[in-house]
Simulated scan of single mutants.
Amino acid sequence: MKNITYLVLSTLIALSSCNLFELDNYDLPAETLKGTVVDKETGEPILTDQGSEGIRVRLTELSWGDNVSPNPDFFCMPDGTFQNTKLFAGTYNVRIDGPFIPLIREDDRGVPLADETQTVDIKGVSEVTFEVQPFLKVEWVKDPEVINGKVRAQIRVTRGVSKEEFRSKIEPMGGYSDSFQNITDIQLFVSYSSTVGYRARDERWSSQLEFSGSSFNDMLGETITIESNGTIPEGRMVFVRAAARINFDTPRGSGTRRWNYNEPRQVLVY
């Protein structure tokens, strides 16, 4: 029995002296990356949706070599800014994908055509600005108004990048079609939330206009009227926002067609 007791005590002492019982003394990730996405031509922010249909941010830490997996994706806020406060210090490739000319473009053989991502040394608070070419620009023509419990909005949709430049950037990627530039739909999102958009919409009241082929082309730059669905109860304060998108997915092949937005407006239903 004494031999068994001695053996147990010896084993515990040996284990206590090894790394098994050492505390993890690595610092928690605490570095911050702040970013802004703006229109290359106007300097205006690229307004977006706060969700997977919005502007996607992908970070890849380059310190670990060429084959490292990216960090988990995150998304811009509706005003076109993004922030991540839980990063380890290091050198990162920063890539964004959204309703604008892709930053990374390759031909159908995988040969690089352009890489407009950015490499950033992140330590403390680091900031980055991306200047992009948005597919569309969506503007309020006038403040939305309420008529019989419905929100009536008047908007204008124009191209943020010319048809010729879009084609010059996208056609070398292969499989080009003129249909990529077709405007497919206009959405009017209604919500109690100030982050109103596809991910924060009330389906009872949000509405859409759909367009086939190139049928919207004659309406570019014209005033478009769109009304909310249903009847919003009197006395409610809601937020509304319009969005439009083209028949082109970003990243290419993802199947995600992202909207360009205007800024939200607050409306009292009376």
Rank of each mutant, 00 (worst) to 15 (best):
1 M>N: 10
56 R>L: 14
13 I>L: 14
175 G>D: 07
181 Q>R: 12
100 F>A: 06
174 G>I: 10
76 C>T: 05
201 R>N: 09
93 N>V: 10
221 G>E: 01
85 T>R: 10
203 E>K: 10
50 Q>S: 12
214 S>R: 12
235 G>F: 08
244 A>G: 08
179 S>P: 04
85 T>C: 11
153 A>I: 04
244 A>L: 06
21 F>A: 08
166 F>V: 02
71 N>R: 15
170 I>N: 03
139 E>Y: 13
225 T>S: 01
148 N>I: 11
227 E>W: 11
172 P>R: 07
175 G>R: 05
150 K>V: 00
2 K>I: 14
147 I>A: 07
229 N>K: 08
220 L>P: 03
117 T>D: 03
270 Y>C: 09
84 N>G: 02
74 F>S: 06
267 V>Y: 00
114 A>K: 07
268 L>C: 05
127 E>G: 07
196 V>E: 03
87 L>G: 04
222 E>A: 09
228 S>E: 01
149 G>I: 04
255 G>T: 07
96 I>R: 00
191 S>Q: 00
148 N>R: 05
53 E>H: 12
184 T>H: 07
241 R>M: 03
16 S>D: 11
238 V>E: 02
216 F>I: 07
202 D>Q: 09
199 R>F: 14
79 D>Y: 05
27 D>F: 08
142 K>D: 15
169 K>W: 12
255 G>F: 13
227 E>L: 09
154 Q>A: 06
47 L>Y: 05
